[in-house]
Amino acid sequence: MTIKLNDCYYEVEEGTSLAVFIQNIGLKPDGIAVAVNFEVVPKNKWAETFLSDRMELMLIHAVSGG
């Protein structure tokens, strides 16, 4: 199945959790946040949040700014 993260598409296996997906793309949970359909998914729910086909994720991180 295919999911979209920011502007990139990813092929993922059925039953992949958000926690596993984040790990697979080489990210650490510190300093990032993920939302599905503009709803924040708290980090303690990542392991029980399973990706589904055409799911759209937004992932933000820290950048410099005043």
Partner: peptide
Amino acid sequence: VAMKRLDLMNKQNDM
């Protein structure tokens, strides 16, 4: 600190 959508093509900024 500001926030931005992560560009996965580029390495994560460690600011």
